[in-house]
C-alpha cells in the first residue's frame, strides 16, 4: 500500500515519517517515534489516555490518522518532562498521590498542563474537573488529581 511521506514537529524537533493511510497517530508516536507515554486504553476515542497536544490542543491520538500530523506540532509528555510547569505538576501528582496505577497519568498531566497554561490565575475545582473530563481514571476518583492540579497551578501562577 502507498505510504505517505509527512513532516511535522514532535516535541520541538523536526521529524519525518512514512505512514500508511490507515495508520493511527497513536501507533506512529508509540511504535515509530518511541513516545511510550502515549497510552492506548480503548482504541475508540472514549478513554482519553492517548491524549497528546496537536498545535497546542488536546487530541485523541487513537482516532487521528497519522498523516494528518503533516505540518503540525505534536507534543507528548516526553517533550514536557523538562518544562518547569510540568515539573511542578509531576511533583504535585506525587505529593497528592494522584498517580495510582499511572496509566492515565501522562494524559491527565497533559490536559492539566494545558488547562493551567491557558487559565488566568488558579482554575477553580469545577474548571479543573471540566478540563480533565476527557480523560478517564479508574483508580483515584479524580479528587487527588484535581487537588494536585490546583496546587500546581498555585505554584505556577505565583
Amino acid at each position: 500500500m502507498d505510504r505517505i511521506r509527512i513532516s511535522f514537529r514532535l516535541n520541538g524537533v523536526e521529524r519525518e515519517a512514512f505512514v500508511s493511510p490507515e495508520e493511527r497517530l497513536l501507533d506512529m508516536l508509540r511504535d515509530d517515534m518511541g513516545m511510550k507515554s502515549v497510552k492506548e486504553g480503548c482504541g475508540t476515542g472514549d478513554c482519553g489516555t492517548c491524549t497528546v497536544l496537536v498545535n497546542g490542543k488536546p487530541v485523541l491520538s487513537c482516532i487521528m490518522p497519522a498523516f494528518q500530523a503533516r505540518g503540525k506540532e505534536i507534543t507528548t509528555l516526553e517533550g514536557l518532562n523538562e518544562d518547569s510547569a510540568m515539573k511542578v505538576i509531576q511533583d504535585k501528582f506525587r505529593e497528592y498521590h494522584a498517580a495510582q496505577c499511572g496509566f492515565c497519568t501522562p494524559a491527565m498531566e497533559i490536559v492539566g498542563y494545558k488547562l493551567i497554561k491557558e487559565s488566568d490565575g488558579v482554575p477553580s475545582k469545577e474548571e479543573v474537573k471540566e478540563g480533565i473530563s476527557g480523560v478517564l481514571c479508574r483508580c483515584t476518583g479524580y479528587y487527588d488529581i484535581v487537588d494536585a492540579l490546583r496546587s500546581a497551578a498555585e505554584v505556577i501562577k505565583k
Binding site: 511510550k36 507515554s37 497510552k39 492506548e40 507528548t76 509528555l77 516526553e78 518532562n81 509531576q90 501528582f93 506525587r94 505529593e95 498521590h97 498517580a99 496505577c101 499511572g102 496509566f103 497519568t105 501522562p106 498531566e109
Partner: peptide
C-alpha cells in the same frame, strides 16, 4: 509518606507491558 513507585509513572516512562 510519598510513594516510591510513582516517579516513572508521572514521567510517562516505558514501564507497562506494551511499552
Amino acid at each position: 509518606l510519598r510513594r516510591i513507585d510513582d516517579l516513572e509513572k508521572v514521567l510517562g516512562k516505558p514501564i507497562y507491558t506494551n511499552d
